[in-house]
Nucleic acid binder design. Structure first.
Length: 808
DNA sequence: TAAGTGAAATTTTTT
DNA sequence: ATTTCACTTA
C-alpha cells in the first residue's frame, strides 16, 4: 500500500536522465552530475527505490560523503521518502571507517579506546620527531602533509625511502616510519589511518571484509572526484567481486587535489569497474542561464575534463555583476551595503545571501562590517570551537582518562595548570620510559624508581597520576567500558543497537564528571584567578562544552563518541539552514550549498587564484579555476563578483592586480561596476616607488619596476577595467602620505642592508649563506639564501636583516 | 620551574 | 596584525 504510494512519487519530478540512473540498481554506475543537476536527489531516490523494491533493508545501504553536513542532509532527505530511511548507513568516509575500526582495532594491535589525532595533534607529533632528530630545516606542517599524501597514496615507508632523493624527501623518509611507529605506541590514529588501516584490516582478515561487504550490499559515494587513492581502494574492497557501487561526481568540481584527491578516479571508473554504466546529468535546476554561461566560460579552459554543458530552462534573472573597489574595507562595505539595501526593501532575507572567499582570513572585514550594521550572520569554518585552546585542553584531560597511552594529551595538560613537573622532569621520565619500554604515564605512576628525581617531582607525579586514575574510575562507573564485542555479532544497525543498549539516563552524568575533572585539576580555578576578559571568555567556552556534553549525555552517548565527534566534526557542520542570517564561508565550505544571492569576493591575482607571494608556480591554476566554477554555481539568481585594488595582507597594504579569471568572463553578459576604482591610483603609483626604494634598501641598486609589470599587463588584457576609470573620488589623506613620502618612509631603512644575488650573507640563526635570488615582497625584499649545510631558506629582509659579509 | 620577553612565522583550502 | 616559539630572568 505504502509501497505503491512511494513508487509513484519516486519517479515523478525526475527528468529522464535522473530516472534512468535511479532505476539502475545493479552493478557499477557512474553519474556525472554537473553543479545543481540534482545529484543528491538522484542519490536519495535511488536509495528509496532500492529499499522499496526490497532489494535491501535500509541499513544494508551505505552512502559515503565527505562532510558530516552532506551525510546529514542525505540521511534526512532519504528518510523523507524511504520507509526506515533514517537507518541508512550514511556518513563520511572517516566516520564510517571509524565504526569498522572500533570493532576490530585490537586485531590490528591498537587499544580498544584508541585516540584520534586530529591535524593539530599529528603536526605536534611530527614536530617532536623532528626535534629529536634535531632537524629544523623544514616546517613540521609541511612534513606532515607530505606524510599524509603518502598515506593517501598508499605508499609505505620502505617504498618511499627507496625513492626519496631531495633533502626534504629524505627528511620525510626518515620521519614517516617513526611517525607511524609512535602513533601506534601512543594508541592513536590520525585521520589518514582511519582510511588506510581498514584497507590493511580488510587485506589481512578477509573475514572482516566479508562481514562488512556482506552487510553493505549497496554502496553509494558522493563527490567521487574528491576521493583519493586510498578511498578508492577501500571502495573497491568493499564493493567486492560483484560491485554494486553507485558513484556520483563532477570532475569540474574537483577542488581537493591538494590533499590527495584524484580526479582520475572518475576518469578510470569505467576501466576499474568493468561494465559500468555512465549517466550524465546536465540539466541545471539551480541557476539562471547567465550564471551558467559565466561558469562554463571559466571552467571550459580547464585542460582535462569530461565534456559537458550545463543548461537550464529557467528564464529571466539578473545579469551577473563585477564590482571593483579601492580597498578590502571598501569591498566589505560594498557587499554589506548591498545586502542592507535588498533586505531593508524587503526583497530578500538575510539568509538569502552568502559571502564567499578563498581563505578564512578574509572573513574578518565582512564580519566587522556586518556587526557594525547589526546584521545577523554566521561564519562557517575558520577557527572552530574545538580548536580553541581551552577546549583542546579539556578534551586532552578526557582523552587521557580514556587512553593513558596518549602521551600527546598528557604532555598537553601536564603544565596546565602548572603542577611542578617541568621540562627536566619530563625528560628524565621519558628517558626511563624509553629504556624500559613503558609509557610515560606508567613511568609517572612509578616515578620513585626513576633516578635523579627530587621528592617534589615524585610527589607531583604521584598526585597527577592518582587524579587521572580516580577520574578514570569515576568515568567507568557512569559509563562501563564495553565488553569485547564478539566477532559474530549480528548485522544489527549500529544506530538501533546503541539506542537499545542505553539504560535510564541520569541527568547528564558526563557533564558532571567533566566538570569535576576540570575543577579538581585546578584548570578552572586558574582561569577564575586570572579573572581578565580573556579568561572569562575561556570559561564561557568551557561552559558551552559542558552543555554540549550534557546534551550528548542525555542522548546516551558515551564520552568516546563525544570525542570522536569532536575530532571528526568540524565547525563546518554547524550550518543552520533555518536561521535568518548572512552566511560567510570559504568556497570549499560552500560546496554542496546553494543560495539565492552570492558574493564571490577577492577576485584578485594571488588572492583568487591563490598563490604564495614568492613562488607563483606553486598554484594549481586548473584547480583554482574549478574552485571558481564551484563558487559561481552556488548562486540561484544573483551573482556579484568583487575585487579590490589594495588589500591588507599580513598587516601590510598590498597592491592587487585583477584575477585572471575576470579576463575569461564573457564580456557582454556581465555588468561591470567600478566604485571609486581610481581612488587608489595615486597611492598605487606611490607604493610602487616606495617598493622600488625599499628593495634597494641601502641604495646600492636602482629602483626596480617591481609590481608594475604584472599590473600593466593585467590592465592591458582587461580593457574593461580602464572603463572603470570613470570614478570621481579622490585620494584619502593616508594614501596621500604614502604616496608622497616614499623616501622618508624607507630611506630610514639605512639599517636594513641591501643584498643581491651572489652576495655572501650571515644570519644570526642559520649562519653564512649565499643569496640565490631576491624578489620584491610588499615593502621589503624576499631573499632566497642557500645556507651552508642547511639548505635554502626564504627570508624577508626587513625582518631577517641579513648582513652582507664584506669581501676580503 | 615558570612566568615574562622579543623575534619570527603565518594564510590556502578540510576529514 | 596576530600568534607562536625560543630564550631570558625571578
Amino acid at each position: 500500500m505504502n509501497q505503491f504510494q512511494f513508487a509513484t512519487d519516486l519517479f515523478t519530478g525526475l527528468n529522464d536522465a535522473q530516472k534512468a540512473a535511479v532505476e539502475c540498481t545493479e552493478g557499477p554506475v557512474l553519474v556525472l552530475a554537473g553543479a545543481g543537476s540534482g545529484k543528491t536527489r538522484v542519490l536519495t531516490h535511488r536509495i528509496a527505490h532500492i529499499v522499496q523494491q526490497r532489494l535491501a533493508r535500509p541499513w544494508q545501504v551505505l552512502a559515503v560523503t565527505f562532510t558530516n553536513k552532506a551525510a546529514g542532509e542525505l540521511k534526512q532527505r532519504a528518510a523523507q521518502i524511504t520507509d526506515g530511511g533514517d537507518e541508512v548507513a550514511a556518513g563520511t568516509f572517516h566516520s564510517t571507517m571509524l565504526r569498522v575500526l572500533r570493532r576490530d582495532a585490537e586485531t590490528l594491535g591498537y587499544p580498544r579506546d584508541f585516540s584520534i589525532f586530529d591535524a593539530d595533534d599529528s603536526v605536534r607529533l611530527v614536530k617532536q620527531i623532528l626535534k629529536d632528530h634535531s632537524e629544523d630545516r623544514f616546517r613540521p606542517k609541511m612534513v606532515h602533509s607530505a606524510i599524509s599524501k603518502l598515506k593517501n597514496d598508499l605508499v609505505d615507508p620502505e617504498t618511499y625511502d627507496a625513492r626519496a632523493k631531495l633533502p626534504f624527501e629524505r627528511v620525510v623518509a626518515a620521519v614517516y616510519p617513526e611517525y607511524k611507529k609512535r602513533l601506534k605506541v601512543l594508541g592513536g590514529m590520525d585521520f589518514d589511518d582511519l582510511i588506510t588501516l581498514p584497507i590493511q584490516l580488510f587485506r589481512e582478515y578477509p573475514a572482516v571484509l566479508n562481514y562488512w561487504s556482506g552487510r553493505w550490499r549497496y554502496l553509494h559515494v558522493d563527490e567521487m572526484q574528491d576521493t583519493n587513492r586510498a578511498q578508492f581502494e577501500l571502495l573497491r574492497q568493499l564493493a567486492g567481486p560483484k560491485p554494486n557501487l553507485f558513484a556520483v561526481g563532477d570532475d569540474d568540481q574537483s577542488i581537493y587535489g591538494w590533499r590527495g584527491a584524484r580526479v582520475d578516479n572518475i576518469f578510470s571508473f569505467k576501466d576499474v569497474f568493468e561494465g559500468a554504466k555512465v549517466f550524465r546529468l546536465e540539466q541545471n535546476y539551480r541557476s539562471t542561464q547567465q550564471i551558467l554561461d559565466l561558469a562554463n566560460a571559466v571552467v571550459s579552459k580547464s585542460i582535462r575534463r569530461e565534456e559537458k554543458k550545463l543548461w537550464t530552462n529557467r528564464s529571466g534573472g539578473v545579469v551577473p555583476e563585477v564590482v571593483g573597489v579601492g580597498t578590502d574595507i571598501d569591498e566589505a562595505r560594498e557587499v554589506v551595503d548591498r545586502i542592507g539595501r535588498a533586505t531593508l526593501s524587503g526583497k530578500r532575507a538575510f539568509k538569502d545571501f552568502a559571502i564567499l572567499y578563498r581563505t578564512n582570513a578574509q572573513s574578518r572585514l565582512f564580519e566587522d562590517a556586518l556587526r557594525a550594521m547589526r546584521y545577523p550572520y554566521q561564519v562557517l569554518g575558520g577557527v572552530g570551537f574545538y580548536s580553541r585552546k581551552e577546549i583542546r585542553d579539556a578534551l586532552a584531560y578526557f582523552r587521557l582518562c580514556l587512553n593513558p597511552l596518549d602521551e600527546l594529551s598528557l604532555r598537553r595538560i601536564i603544565a596546565e595548570p602548572p603542577r611542578g613537573i617541568g621540562a627536566t622532569t619530563l625528560q628524565k621520565l621519558q628517558a626511563f620510559g624509553a629504556e624500559h619500554d613503558r609509557s610515560l604515564f606508567e613511568v609517572m605512576t612509578k616515578s620513585n624508581l626513576v633516578d635523579g628525581l627530587g621528592t617534589r617531582a615524585v610527589n607531583a607525579c604521584q598526585k597527577f597520576t592518582e587524579q587521572i586514575l580516580t577520574w578514570q574510575t569515576a568515568l567507568h562507573s557512569i559509563q562501563p567500558p564495553k565488553p569485547a564485542e564478539n566477532g559474530d555479532a549480528e548485522a544489527i544497525p549500529d544506530d538501533v543497537q546503541s539506542i537499545a543498549e542505553g539504560e535510564a539516563a541520569e541527568p547528564a552524568p558526563l557533564e558532571k564528571w567533566a566538570q569535576t575533572v576540570l575543577e579538581e585539576s585546578g584548570y578552572i580555578g586558574r582561569l577564575r584567578d586570572e579573572g581578565d576578559f580573556e579568561a572569562q571568555g575561556r570559561l564561557d567556552n568551557l561552559d558551552s562544552l559542558f552543555n554540549s556534553l550534557a546534551e550528548h549525555s542525555v542522548r546516551r552517548g558515551t564520552l568516546q563518541d563525544y570525542l570522536e565527534q569532536a575530532a571528526l566534526a568540524s565547525d563546518q557542520d554547524k550550518y543552520d539552514p533555518g536561521a535568518d542570517s548572512v552566511r560567510l564561508m570559504t568556497i570549499h565550505a560552500a560546496k554542496g550549498l546553494e543560495f539565492p544571492s552570492v558574493f564571490v569576493t577577492g577576485l584578485e591575482d594571488k588572492t583568487f587564484p591563490l598563490s604564495s607571494p614568492d613562488d607563483d608556480d606553486s598554484r594549481d591554476l586548473d584547480e583554482e579555476r574549478r574552485l571558481f566554477y564551484v563558487a559561481v554555481t552556488r548562486a540561484h539568481d544573483e551573482l556579484v563578483l568583487t575585487y579590490t585594488q589594495n588589500r591588507r595582507v599580513w598587516g601590510q597594504f598590498t597592491d592587487m592586480g585583477p584575477s585572471p579569471f575576470l579576463l575569461d568572463l564573457p564580456k557582454d553578459s556581465i555588468e561591470w561596476t567600478g566604485r571609486n576604482p581610481m581612488s587608489s591610483a595615486g597611492k598605487y603609483q606611490g607604493l610602487q616607488k616606495a617598493q622600488g626604494y625599499t628593495g634597494s634598501g641601502g641604495g646600492s641598486w636602482k629602483p626596480r619596476t617591481l609590481s608594475k609589470a604584472p599590473r600593466k599587463q593585467a590592465s592591458a588584457e582587461l580593457p574593461v577595467l580602464g572603463r572603470l576609470g570613470g570614478g570621481t573620488q579622490h585620494d584619502e589623506p593616508n594614501e596621500e602620505s604614502q604616496a608622497t613620502s616614499p623616501q622618508t618612509a624607507h630611506v630610514s631603512g639605512e639599517d636594513i642592508p641591501a643584498v643581491r644575488a651572489g652576495d655572501l650573507v650571515t644570519h644570526p640563526k642559520f649562519g653564512q649563506g649565499i643569496v640565490i635570488a631576491t624578489s620584491p615582497f610588499q615593502d621589503s625584499v624576499r631573499v632566497t639564501v642557500e645556507f651552508d649545510g642547511i639548505g635554502q631558506k626564504k627570508l624577508i629582509q626587513k625582518i631577517a636583516r641579513l648582513q652582507p659579509v664584506k669581501d676580503f
